[in-house]
Lab assay of single mutants.
Amino acid sequence: IINNLKLIREKKKISQSELAALLEVSRQTINGIEKNKYNPSLQLALKIAYYLNTPLEDIFQW
């Protein structure tokens, strides 16, 4: 999986903590996703895309 979450999140000036709060997950979860240590569920990936107002395929590429 190619993961552009960190790049997109930083472009939008959103911290890991802010995104985690919006998604109701821990900051460690966001960190793990960004470091490719954790693959989000489809539901979480869709929520990330929604809150970042970015197409899912721009954030994650399988």
Rank of each mutant, 00 (worst) to 15 (best):
I8N: 05
S15M: 05
Q28V: 13
A20K: 01
W62C: 14
E10P: 04
D58G: 04
T54E: 09
I48S: 00
L42P: 08
E57R: 12
E57Y: 09
N3Y: 02
W62V: 12
Q28L: 10
L44D: 04
E34G: 03
L7F: 13
E57S: 11
A45D: 03
I2C: 13
N3C: 08
R9N: 02
L23W: 02
Y51P: 02
L19V: 01
K37A: 10
S26F: 05
L56E: 04
K47E: 06
A49S: 12
A20S: 07
E24I: 06
S26C: 06
N31V: 15
L52W: 00
N39W: 11
A45Y: 04
N3F: 03
I30N: 00
S41L: 03
Y38W: 09
Q61T: 11
N39E: 12
E57Q: 10
L19T: 00
Q43N: 11
E10V: 09
T29K: 07
W62E: 08
L5V: 09
S15V: 05
P40L: 08
S15Q: 06
G32C: 15
L22P: 01
K6A: 11
N53H: 11
E24Q: 13
E18I: 06
N39R: 15
S17K: 12
E18V: 09
A49C: 06
L5A: 02
K37D: 12
P40V: 11
L5Q: 01
A49I: 02
S17V: 12
S41E: 06
K6I: 05
Y38F: 15
I33F: 06
L7V: 15
L5E: 00
L56T: 04
A20G: 06
K12E: 07
N3L: 04
I2M: 13
F60M: 03
Q16R: 09
K11Y: 09
K47G: 06
Y51E: 06
I48C: 05
I2N: 10
P55R: 08
L19E: 00
K12M: 10
N36A: 08
L42H: 09
I8E: 05
P40C: 08
E10Q: 09
L56W: 05
T29D: 06
N39S: 14
I59G: 01
L42Q: 08
L7A: 14
N53P: 03
Y50A: 09
S41Q: 05
E18G: 07
I14P: 01
L56F: 10
L42S: 07
L44T: 05
I48Q: 00
T29Y: 15
L19H: 04
T54L: 05
S41T: 12
L23V: 15
L22G: 11
I59W: 02
E34S: 04
L44H: 03
Y50Q: 10
L42C: 15
S41Y: 04
E34A: 01
K47L: 07
A21H: 11
K13T: 06
S15P: 05
K6W: 06
I30V: 12
S41C: 06
A45K: 12
L7W: 10
V25C: 07
I1C: 15
I30D: 00
S26N: 13
Y50V: 07
A21M: 09
F60I: 03
L56C: 07
I30K: 01
E10A: 06
K11W: 08
L23T: 15
L22C: 11
S17D: 12
V25P: 00
D58N: 08
K13M: 10
I14M: 13
N53V: 08
N53D: 15
L5I: 08
I59H: 02
I2E: 10
A45H: 02
K47D: 06
L44F: 09
K47N: 07
Y50W: 14
N53G: 11
E10R: 08
L52C: 03
D58T: 10
V25W: 02
P55M: 05
L7I: 13
R27L: 15
N31Q: 13
L44I: 06
K47R: 14
E24W: 07
L7Q: 15
I1G: 10
F60S: 00
G32P: 01
Y51G: 05
K11M: 10
P55H: 06
Y51A: 13
E57H: 09
I33A: 01
I30T: 00
L56R: 03
N3T: 05
N4I: 04
N31C: 10
N39D: 08
A45E: 01
S26K: 09
L22Y: 15
K37Y: 15
E24D: 13
P55Q: 06
L44R: 02
Q61C: 09
I48V: 06
E57C: 10
N36S: 12
A20W: 02
K12A: 13
K13D: 11
S41W: 03
Q16V: 13
S26V: 02
L19A: 02
Y38I: 15
Q43F: 09
L42Y: 14
I59L: 12
L56M: 13
I59R: 01
P40A: 06
F60D: 01
Q16W: 03
N36T: 05
Q43Y: 12
Q28E: 15
I1W: 15
I8S: 04
V25Y: 02
T54F: 04
A21T: 11
A21F: 11
K11S: 14
L44K: 01
L46T: 11
K13P: 02
I48R: 00
D58A: 09
I59A: 01
I14V: 11
P40S: 03
L46I: 11
L44P: 01
K12R: 09
I30G: 00
L19C: 03
Y51C: 10
L52D: 00
D58Y: 08
P40T: 06
E57G: 10
Q28F: 09
K37S: 12
K37F: 15
V25K: 03
L46S: 09
L5K: 00
L19G: 01
A21W: 06
I14T: 04
A20E: 01
R9F: 04
L23F: 01
P40W: 03
I2R: 13
L56P: 06
L5R: 00
Q28R: 14
Q16L: 11
A20Q: 03
Y51S: 08
N3D: 02
I33K: 01
L23K: 01
A45W: 11
A20Y: 03
I30P: 01
E10H: 09
K37R: 13
L5T: 02
I14L: 13
G32W: 12
K37E: 15
I59S: 00
T54C: 08
E57W: 06
W62S: 11
N39Y: 14
I14Y: 08
T54Q: 05
I14R: 03
Y38E: 09
Q43R: 13
D58I: 07
K6T: 08
K6E: 10
L44V: 06
T29S: 08
S26R: 06
L46D: 05
K11E: 12
